[in-house]
Amino acid sequence: MRNVILFIRRYFTFFTFLFLQVVSLWFLYSYNTFHQAQFLQTANELTGQVNSRYKKVENFFALGDENRRVHQLNDSLFNLLARQYVQTDTGRQLVRDTVPSDTLNRYRRYYFRPAAVIYNSTSSEKNYIQLDRGALHGITENMSVLNSDGAAVGVVVNVSPRFAQVMSLLHVRQKVNVALKKSGDFGTIEWDGVDPGLLLLKGLPKSVPVKVGDSVVTSRYSFNFPPGYPVGTVAEVISDPGTNFFLLKVKPAARFYNLQYVFVVENLQYSEQAQLDEQTRKRIEDPKRTTR
């Protein structure tokens, strides 16, 4: 026993080193698997304060640029308003939920909340954006984020009371369902971590005519993103002879380097859609269930 204690005392520094390394690596890997890590909840609150101070100074230098964009957006908003609604068949509507509808019985499907970007990176392979709105302002996970021009930016992955963390399109694990504006054919947008100026569009069959310069917009099949908002333009068409699908390089419509104000878009039917999807999968694909 004495020898054991002596041994530990002798190598105490080494054990401290090992212990701290293991703690660091544990933080690192547990965070990557669970976004919910308590660690970041408090971290958001602490660094968020510093970040918002800094942002106040930084915003001052870009006011002119931002004003012009806001004006442009205000103009176009009048045309966009109707798009936030979907038509429902009132003849079969039995239950009404609390979501307000307008006089034409069109139900609000998407709700836009403005937010300011207080931290943003484009240099890593896994880029996150921090917003100054959090759970207290109604932000929840899985809401989509558009920039002030309406171009897709990312998806909210974590919220603390006053701040929200967004997984940018420039994140190697991000996957967003998109469509070609011209034909409506859909594919998935991804990023390989190489060039922040180019996203990858996969899963588009070769039968679809694609040209350089075609617009890519958010798809109608996405649960998070409202349909028809710009994602980017096709910059290069790569025809991989091994598969039946194109590999398209897409120049993103949002400029990730100077994001300042964004919209956080809530799909008011998200939970219902996601739940239905999950239930369907369970019912159809669960092998233990006996068929009737």
Binding site: T13, S24, F27, L28, Y31, A43, L46, V50, Y119, S121
Partner: peptide, 23 residues
């Protein structure tokens, strides 16, 4: 060791990569 750990962790708070710089 402890000071280094704290330094790395503080930077990690800002870059949203808990543990990376600390290690």
């Amino acid at each position: 060791l402890l000071i280094a750990f704290a330094t790395g962790l503080t930077l990690d708070y800002f870059t949203q990569t808990p543990g990376l710089h600390a290690a």
